[in-house]
């Protein structure tokens, strides 16, 4: 194997820190700390290693410790005109963002963050290092544990190191707003980066080369704004994209992502239902990968 496949020393250290027996909570930037429940305060807190370990601009890949902040990541990538479109607070960590698995508001164009993950090294419940995926931009070697780990709230393993695919930063970005039918906006534009709607007002993000952004903007009667509106953050749920048509404006404050189906609301949302069969598969995974439930107790991917 090449040096690209070698396990960094920092990951070995983290594996020793996670250890083998007591309950532990992995702490990132605490920006989504209560998603899935409040971490059990009695568990020992551990922190994943941080640092950009390699960034090869011509490969458009970056390898970093899971504890690296999004600020550090985006500053590094921006030097080479690249980005990983997480769209989250800069003090959030890469590992935290992936463990929670909630994409940012430009998902409409860039897809789910899990599709940018090439390789994950995690520490399992026995303190051992597990590598899945690989360092190249395309890979189907073995089972796709990378997809499984995204959104797992650290219940199946503690993210230690990730390799991500980077994207070129768009030449131009414009946010526009106005009162218009958001579904018509979606139908008319070619791959906009974001369409937000609060039941009355629409915000649209267009990205690309300047001439395209101008031309797309000219299709709509909208006014330029600085950026997206603040999103209500107490609740979040998702529906199939076309069901957003039937969301009615009531006394709650909400903003929906058109074409994606995510709704940000100021009211805590009820957990979406999981079928019995899927729940039992998920419990089997938990039972096999963390039989004593020592990883991140207090939080639940599958509500109890």
């Amino acid at each position: 194997m090449s040096s690209l496949h070698a396990v960094p020393e920092e990951v070995h250290k983290f594996s020793a820190e996670v250890g083998t027996s007591d309950p532990i909570t992995v702490v990132g930037g605490r920006t989504q700390w209560n998603v899935g429940g409040t971490p059990d305060g009695s568990a020992r807190e551990v922190t994943a290693p941080s640092g950009i370990w390699s960034h090869e601009p011509e490969e458009m890949t970056v390898r970093c410790g899971a504890g690296t902040t999004l600020r550090e990541l985006s500053e590094q990538l921006a030097q080479h005109g690249q980005m990983v479109p997480f769209d989250m607070p800069p003090n959030a960590t890469v590992g935290g963002a992936l463990s929670v698995g909630r994409s940012g508001i430009r998902r409409l164009r860039y897809g789910h963050m899990r599709d940018l993950v090439l390789q994950i090294r995690h520490i399992d419940c026995n303190g051992k290092i597990v590598t899945s995926g690989g360092p190249t931009v395309k890979n189907v070697s073995g089972y796709d544990l990378c997809r499984l780990m995204v959104g797992s709230l650290g219940k199946l393993g503690c993210l230690a190191e990730v390799i991500l695919r980077c994207l070129p930063k768009p030449q131009a970005t414009r946010w526009l707003t106005g009162v218009i039918d958001p579904f018509e906006v979606y139908a008319r534009l070619y791959r906009p980066s974001s369409i937000l709607w609060n039941g009355e007002q629409v915000w649209v993000c267009l990205e690309g080369v300047s001439s395209d952004v101008e031309a797309e903007a000219a299709l709509l009667d909208l006014t330029e704004v600085e950026g997206p509106p603040p999103l209500p953050s107490d609740g979040r749920f998702s529906v199939e994209p076309k069901a957003l048509r039937n969301l009615s404006v009531d006394d709650t404050n909400w903003i929906a992502e058109i074409g994606v189906g995510i709704v940000h609301s100021d009211r805590p949302s009820k957990a979406q239902k999981i079928s019995k069969t899927n729940e039992s598969l998920m419990r089997e995974l938990e039972r096999r990968l963390d039989p004593n439930g020592r990883l991140n107790p207090g939080r639940q991917v599958v509500p109890l």
Partner: peptide, 18 residues
């Protein structure tokens, strides 16, 4: 069973991706 669904963030682990 059905793994994943048409909503953007199906609840639970990503069995579909697996």
């Amino acid at each position: 069973t059905v793994l994943g669904d048409l909503s953007a963030e199906p609840p639970g682990y990503d069995l579909r991706g697996l």
